[in-house]
Computed example of a mutant assay.
Amino acid sequence: MITITGHEQFRAWQEKTMPAVEEVRPGVWSIPVPFPGNPMRYTLAYLLVGEGEAVLVDPGWDSDEGWAALVAGLATAGITPSFLTGIVATHFHPDHLGMAARLRAASNAWMALGEHEPLPSQWSQDTREFVAADRTQFQAWGVPAGRLDEVAFQARTWQLMRGMQEPELRLADGVLLPVAGLAVRVLFTPGHTPGHISLIDEVNQLVLTGDHILPRITPHVSLEAHGHGNPLADYLNSLDAMDIASAMEVLPAHEYRFTGLPERLDELREHAQERSREVAGVLAAGNAASVWGVARELTWSRGFDSLHGFTLRLALAETASHLVYLRSQGVPVDIAVPRGAPASAR
């Protein structure tokens, strides 16, 4: 069982309020940034202050409310945005790097991502091509025609992703962040996204886990990002890679800080394997002929029929990731799991 160390954060989570800005260690600050309209409510950005330089990790969702909270949090730590040397996003999701463009404009700080994280500019240069390919994928996964508009990306979604700040720096596994006075090392932890990274601060015995490890919620691992061949296998391997930080305090991007990482890793491994066993059981019964058909037979917290919109999209992509994983483990999987548009349609 984990031990909660972010007591103020835990209380805020329970009470559905915003936690306070906290100095976790000398020069290490936790700054909550609002995530409007989302059940997660906030992203925990982390300010790491070195010798005359500083880096901000996961600056959060871009909004005026979030900007005000972030600037106020930096002020509590005694700095302004212009003092920042760098911005690091653990992965390319808007609740983690959405604010990066504003910060770049206010500071001229560099922005960095893991070296293997794919960017929208690498997926497609054409909005119509991308949207059509995404729709074709979900159609091939068995989504009924009447639900395709609900789950497939629309042009506005693509434009949002293309509008986010792209990195000047790419961080390889094992390198130190290029910030004077810090000794924070990059750990490659793919799964939630293809190039997700965590950060190891051995001096302070801290590990910043982004969305890879959260204290209560199981991170979403799905066949979502382009170029991600077997996300669940990657995720399980990345859980093993976290053993290096087993004695450290965990600083996640959501919820609250904790210790007891080995126990949490075991819980996450078992959760993933239990879900795969459930998917394998559906396959063995022989009643499902598509990703949609398998997903309908699985257990969901409020039932499959309660899933709509983006939540339904994620559920289908999660199901697809388990099918790909099971096939890689030698389990007979007769259901096709194509990605994007067929070659003949491109």
Rank of each mutant, 00 (worst) to 15 (best):
R156G: 08
E267G: 08
P342S: 14
N230G: 08
T76W: 01
D64P: 12
A253P: 09
P36G: 06
Q165H: 01
L182A: 14
R102C: 03
R277P: 12
E267S: 14
T189F: 04
A172F: 06
L268N: 07
A280T: 03
E23D: 00
I244Y: 04
W300N: 03
A247Y: 06
A72W: 06
T218H: 14
V55S: 06
R185S: 09
E115A: 13
G309M: 09
L268K: 00
V55A: 07
F153L: 13
A155F: 08
H7P: 01
L261P: 06
E129T: 14
R339D: 11
G60F: 08
M1K: 13
H308Q: 07
P34W: 01
D134N: 13
F188T: 08
T218E: 12
N287H: 04
S301P: 05
P26I: 09
V331E: 05
D305Y: 00
P144E: 03
A225G: 01
N38G: 01
L265N: 00
D95F: 14
E202T: 14
R170G: 06
R102D: 02
G286W: 08
E23Y: 00
D173C: 05
A284N: 07
R313M: 15
A225K: 09
L48P: 02
L169F: 10
T85F: 05
F153E: 11
T127P: 06
W123A: 14
V221T: 15
E23V: 00
V24S: 04
W300I: 08
L223Y: 13
L326G: 06
P338M: 07
L48N: 05
P219I: 03
L261G: 02
Q165A: 08
V57P: 13
H212P: 05
A289P: 00
L113M: 03
L47C: 10
P26Y: 03
W67C: 12
A343T: 11
W61V: 03
I31S: 00
P36F: 15
P19I: 05
R269K: 15
H226P: 04
L160A: 11
A320C: 12
A77Y: 09
A100K: 10
D173S: 06
A89Q: 09
P190M: 08
V333Y: 07
L48S: 03
Q273K: 11
S30G: 13
V151W: 14
L187I: 01
V207T: 11
W158I: 07
S107F: 07
D243I: 12
L316C: 02
S290A: 05
G229C: 04
H308N: 12
A69H: 06
E270C: 03
T299C: 10
A77C: 14
L265H: 00
R162K: 04
S30E: 09
S222D: 09
P167N: 12
A140K: 10
A89P: 04
L298S: 13
I2G: 04
F92M: 07
S290C: 00
V179C: 01
Q139T: 14
W300Q: 05
F10E: 12
A145N: 15
H228T: 10
E129Q: 15
A75I: 00
T299S: 12
R104C: 04
G309C: 08
L214R: 04
W110P: 10
D134I: 03
G114Q: 12
L171P: 10
Q139S: 13
A272F: 09
T157M: 12
